[in-house]
Design a protein around this nucleic acid. Structure first.
Length: 575
RNA sequence: UACCCCGUGGUGUAAUGGUAGCACAAGUGGUUUUGGUCCACUCGGUCCAGGUUCGAAUCCUGGCGGGGUAGCCA
């Protein structure tokens, strides 16, 4: 009744469970707490690139707004000029748009409110609720007490209002060096919640801000700026992650003390995925230490990395919908993400044939100069995508994996004397194997074809066990293929023994580069970003590194491979 | 050791005092010109102990386990 059908990603029939955040929103609509309004915000700090964990938050923030006929603002939480940069602002905007969300004309910055936040602070001082503290960072830390011991009041805690006002103004005017003084909220040094032990709300930072330049040398802290920014924008539901749960009393305190519009903060559990890391610090470390090529390395869980890898926004959004929203700390199997990806790609990707590790095949009884254009279906899941011609000739390449001199049990592909179907081509039978006399390596296969099986169907009803893909040697385009796999070799790289570094668990085979691959000619002109299913192998997309001479394909995700499972089982059974 | 939060199959979630369900993963079989897709089936769960109740995954109490919190980061 409240959730608009069209905006709900999950369109399956039956009753739809409502997560606890949406339940809270519904409750507020029904009680009239915000006059029925729903207004959320996505508040990234521009100090890094967005990753799939942020995508979850974006889907919640923008998704809930859309479902309840509300609005969602994009607000950069730019209160710390020492860590932030416009480079990040740009990428964040691009990534949100790529996902398919839009903030329209509601692009804001916490720094837009610096003057107003300053005035609020003055108001707090006048009310005796904030004071300038001259203690050093170390002294403040010690005075805060510990998890079990109460803090001790600062000697400056009862500074007269006039003196606080004067000092705070002079902090703003730049009279004092960094870290010499701060403005603190006067709350409760004995509170069991450490966030309430007179938290710092303004610090002196003689740093140039990416938007306000040198206009300010005092900057508000997150705890202070966030609730007030929400209030200024009229945000009804301030949805954030679990680590801010202990900050909620402080969030509420500022709004109550100042008597301003009171947003409701709701916290949910952040996303964790197996075989990767999600912390900005660790991702930055991987980039800086050169373990990956950059923030957009296709192995990164960043949105730009996933985009370059070939992920679709639809797959990511559907994944975010499926995992739900709860307060339970969890570790989601990346297989679920890959499932969503394949589900989307299967329906949308045109098929093509590419041979990653080529093995030359000569069809001895096929005419020397003959070339046929065979018709291949572009997507069996969507006949509307049509067909394309694929050239066939006497010399082909097939996948080395598709030939075995001594085929194991259940192997359905090519072997000496065996007949297989070439996809959309002919039945061929292997008649001879040419090997390097020194190494024994298979160099080339000789086969015969059955002209009656053109297109892959046998008029006599004869069956073959296997169908393999191929390219015509004379027509194939040489290309590079980058096989990407999970970044880490262990499920929980963030949760390794204390004496080990998470980087020790990187998967040494997370990238395997194949050169000299061959793809069908229709792929020669594919534009960067274009996605394909290479039949029987996986989903691939064109990398920006591609040149007109050599296209470069990234493996987005392999196809499910039941043969690999059988082979593995045979291997373990024989041991 | 203080406060806050969380404990449902291997994983992610639903059931809002009334039949523990879905998805992924795993396994078995069927269809198939992709060992893909699709279809069918199987496996497997309420942290523990008390209490309230006709009835508890759900409410209460106490344990146990996990996470968060002592930045002038967000």
């Amino acid at each position: 009744m409240f959730v608009k059908e069209a905006d709900r990603p999950d369109t399956s029939p039956g009753p739809h469970p409502v997560d606890f955040v949406r339940a809270a929103v519904i409750e507020d609509i029904q009680s009239g707490r915000f006059e029925g309004r729903v207004h959320t915000r996505f508040p990234p700090e521009p100090n890094g690139y967005l990753h799939i964990g942020h995508a979850k938050a974006i889907c919640i923030d923008f998704g809930i707004a859309a479902e309840f006929n509300g609005l969602c603002n994009l607000r950069f939480d730019d209160t710390n000029p020492t860590k932030e940069d416009v480079e990040y602002v740009e990428s964040i905007r691009e990534d949100i748009h790529w996902l398919g969300f839009d903030w329209e004309d509601r692009l804001f910055y916490a720094s837009d409110y610096f003057e107003q936040l300053y005035q609020f602070a003055v108001q707090l001082i006048k009310a005796g609720k904030a004071y300038v503290c001259d203690l050093s960072p170390e002294e403040i830390r010690r005075g805060r007490g510990s998890l079990t011991a109460p803090g001790v009041p600062s000697p400056y805690r009862n500074r007269p209002v006039e003196e606080n006002l004067d000092l705070f103004r002079r902090m703003r005017d730049g009279e004092f060096p960094e870290a010499s003084r701060v403005l603190r909220a006067k709350i409760d040094m004995a509170s069991p919640n450490l966030n309430l032990r007179d938290p710092v709300i303004y610090r002196i930072l003689h740093a140039s801000h990416h938007r306000t330049g040198d206009r300010w040398c005092i900057y508000p802290t997150y705890d202070y700026a966030h609730p007030l920014s929400d209030s200024i924008e009229g945000i009804t539901h301030s949805i954030c992650t679990l680590e801010f749960e202990n900050h909620r009393p402080l969030y509420d305190w500022f709004l109550e003390q100042l008597g301003v519009f009171h947003s409701r903060q709701i916290e949910f559990a952040r996303l964790n995925l197996t075989y990767t890391v999600m912390s900005k610090r660790k991702l930055l470390e991987l980039v800086q230490a050169g373990f990956v090529s950059g923030w957009d390395d296709p192995r990164m869980p960043t949105l730009c990395g996933l985009r370059r890898r070939g992920y679709t926004p639809e797959a990511i959004k559907n994944f975010c919908s499926i995992i739900g929203v709860t307060k339970t700390n969890s570790l989601t199997d990346i297989a679920l993400l890959e499932h969503c990806l394949r589900e989307n790609l299967n329906k949308t990707s045109p098929r093509a044939m590419a041979v990653l590790r080529p093995l030359r095949v000569v069809i001895d009884n096929y005419p020397e100069e003959q070339v046929e254009q065979l018709e291949a279906v572009n997507n069996p899941e969507d006949p509307g995508m049509g067909t394309r011609p694929v050239p066939f000739s006497r010399v082909l390449y097939i996948e080395r994996d598709d030939f075995r001199e001594d085929p194991p049990r259940k192997y359905r592909r090519l072997a000496p004397g065996r007949e297989v179907r070439l996809r959309y081509g002919y039945f061929i039978t292997c008649t001879d194997v040419v090997k390097d006399p020194d190494t024994g390596d298979v160099l080339e296969l000789h086969c015969t074809y059955d002209p009656a099986t053109r297109g892959g169907a046998a008029p006599d009803g004869r069956k073959v066990k296997g169908t393999i893909h191929w390219v015509s040697a004379a027509h194939a385009v040489e290309c590079e293929v980058r096989l990407y796999d999970r970044l880490f070799a262990v499920e929980g790289p963030s949760d390794v023994p204390a004496d080990r570094d998470f980087k020790d668990f990187l998967n040494p085979e997370s990238l395997v580069v194949l050169t000299g691959c061959r793809c069908e000619p229709s792929l020669a002109t594919a534009a960067p970003g274009a996605r394909f299913q290479f039949e029987r192998i996986g989903y691939f997309c064109v990398d920006p590194d591609s040149t007109p001479d050599v296209p470069v394909f990234n493996r987005t995700v392999p196809l499910r491979d039941s043969w690999a499972k059988i082979e593995k089982k045979l291997a373990t059974a024989s041991r």
